[in-house]
């Protein structure tokens, strides 16, 4: 399911003295099945964009195409329920949205709302709890008796239970310890691959964008200003800085090594493994030449 934004603008509190424009002619397409990262400085419009992906916000001008449905400014949108089932959003701190008596009921809530039979919803909950890395015992517990990290996983299972085709992640690992962060990010990546999901990651973490995304869109002052593969996006530090962003740490370190060697490496490396291999290769070549 492609998501296409055409000349989308959005203003909060439109028509009041407090009107504030957050998006200006945003235009991009997210092709079905890709892993897309959206990065940008605080206040760049990332969170406003995100709410357009399942029509929580409707554009002030322009159109949003979600699969074959169109949400356009000034027109009444039909069938939003189907859109919201197909595009699942994991908001920041999703555990704040937990409310049911038991974990099982909480995970089942979404699917039941969308008309899934009780048996099927329960089956999904039992599978998902395992998938998000929790023991089956938690199903009967109150979600409020769990630790923060476990609550996060329950909330994620609740979104996955609707079996969305597109999953939108808004800083999904904020506040988790490093192991929890890696587990959650790896889990989403695996789901992305296995189920052919379209994944949209909205994040401050250049490291995560570099490691997981096929393509990166940069937002700046309410406008999409740059799009490209991580290798291209992170090559140009000056441009990134002009959008008040920094390349990932690994890229900054590569720049230091290049200064040391007094020449650039053959490519921009995005993971520690890649950079270590590249430095080793470069050193071998140099030795061979001598």
């Amino acid at each position: 399911m492609d998501i296409k934004l055409q000349q989308v603008s959005y203003a909060y509190a439109q028509g009041t003295p407090f009107e504030k424009r957050a998006l200006f002619d945003v235009d991009f397409t997210i092709p079905s099945g890709t892993y897309q990262a959206i990065i940008g400085h605080t206040g760049s419009g990332k969170s406003t964009i995100l709410q357009h992906f399942n029509a929580l916000l409707k554009p002030t001008t322009g159109e949003v195409h979600i699969g074959n449905r169109i949400v356009a400014a000034g027109k009444k949108a039909r069938d939003l329920k189907a859109v919201r089932q197909k595009v699942g959003i994991v908001f920041q701190f999703p555990e704040h949205q937990l409310f049911e008596e038991t974990v099982l009921k909480d995970i089942m809530f979404g699917p039941l709302n969308f008309g899934v039979a009780v048996q099927e919803a329960e089956l999904r909950a039992r599978k998902l709890v395992n998938l998000v890395g929790l023991p089956a015992e938690v199903l009967e517990k109150s979600p409020f008796d769990l630790s923060g990290g476990q609550m996060r996983r329950v909330a994620i299972a609740g979104v996955l239970a609707m079996e969305p085709e597109v999953i939108v992640l808004d800083e999904p690992t904020a506040g988790l310890d490093p192991r929890g962060q890696k587990e959650i990010m790896d889990m989403f990546y695996e789901l992305h691959k296995k189920r052919g999901l379209t994944t949209i990651l909205v994040t401050h973490s250049m490291e995560d964008a570099a490691r997981y995304a096929d393509n990166i869109i940069i937002m700046h002052e309410g406008k999409n200003v740059l799009s490209g593969a991580p290798h291209e996006i992170f090559r140009d530090t000056e441009t990134l800085n002009s959008f008040r962003l920094e390349p990932p740490r690994i890229v900054r370190f590569q720049q230091k090594v290049e200064q040391l060697m007094n020449k650039p490496l053959s490519k921009v490396c995005l993971t520690e493994e890649e950079l270590a291999a590249e430095i080793a290769r470069e050193l071998r070549e140099e030795r061979a030449e001598q």
């Binding site: 310890d177 490093p178 192991r179 929890g180 890696k182 740490r249 690994i250 370190f253 520690e272 493994e273 950079l275 270590a276 291999a277 430095i279 080793a280 050193l283």
Partner: peptide, 23 residues
């Protein structure tokens, strides 16, 4: 550190990988 839920410092991780690569 990793075993107990934390991460390795960036430079530590990289030095280990470099040594594995024979640097």
């Amino acid at each position: 550190l990793v075993e107990l839920g934390l991460d390795l410092p960036f430079a530590w991780k990289l030095s280990k990988l470099l040594q594995q690569e024979g640097v």
